[in-house]
């Protein structure tokens, strides 16, 4: 089950990860984008971490909505609306639930990622964060069908996320600023795919504990 408490720990761990990997994300973005991804993600998730005390008193749906709005208004760049949309669209599936079971978590991410794809007009192999989310959702569905435990499902998703992230290295970018580099975008890992990996890994860690 994903409880309110897990979600708050997830956000806290995400903020830690974005702070820890700020320079790595910066360098990945500087190579094929405009170099602000590390700064932007750290600013946005840092702000989210500051909001945790306030969010403790909210319902689960309000927590996700609030997270979406915070990311939307503080991350900036292209990632702000993408991550913001993921949480806002996901929040709409939560209803009055105070905790999500494994199946409801999939519903949450399906809706969130659908929103992300619609916003970014992206397809797989465009060298974007969707190249992490698409295989992660496929893996999640398979694990759910195999009736695996929630924590095991998430562990499998982290592996799928890592494979997806690394698979962006040989890709030719077709979206965002990297797309202007054409062939020169090949050989670099996508920064958005990398921050998505850290977000998924933080979710796993929040459940594992």
């Amino acid at each position: 089950m994903l409880t309110k408490k897990n979600v708050l720990i997830w956000f806290e761990k995400s903020a830690d990860a974005m702070a820890e990997h700020k320079q790595e994300l910066h360098l990945l973005d500087a190579a094929i984008g405009d170099g602000d991804h590390g700064i932007n993600m750290n600013r946005g998730f840092g702000k989210l971490a500051l909001e945790l005390p306030v969010m403790g008193a909210m319902t689960l749906q309000e927590i996700f909505k609030h997270a979406g709005m915070v990311l939307l208004s503080t991350v900036g760049g292209a990632s702000g609306p993408l991550y913001g949309t993921l949480f806002l669209k996901g929040a709409a599936t939560v209803g009055t639930s105070e905790a999500l079971d494994a199946s409801a978590v999939l519903t949450f991410f399906d809706a969130g990622v659908e929103g992300l794809v619609a916003r970014g007009r992206t397809e797989e192999n465009d060298k974007t964060m969707y190249d992490v989310w698409a295989p992660v959702l496929r893996e999640y569905e398979l694990c759910l069908e195999a009736e695996m435990e929630f924590v095991e499902i998430l562990a499998a998703c982290v592996c799928a996320a890592e494979v997806g992230m690394k698979a962006t290295i040989p890709m030719l970018a077709r979206k965002g600023r990297a797309s202007y580099l054409g062939e020169r975008s090949i050989g670099h890992q996508d920064p958005g795919a990398t921050s998505s990996y850290y977000l998924i890994n933080a979710l796993y860690e929040s459940i594992r504990e």
Binding site: D36, M69, S73, G76, G80, P81, G84
Partner: peptide, 12 residues
């Protein structure tokens, strides 16, 4: 206006 060379955010 966003930060220098950085998009503004939707709340603006």
């Amino acid at each position: 206006p966003g930060e220098i060379f950085t998009s503004p955010t939707p709340d603006q």
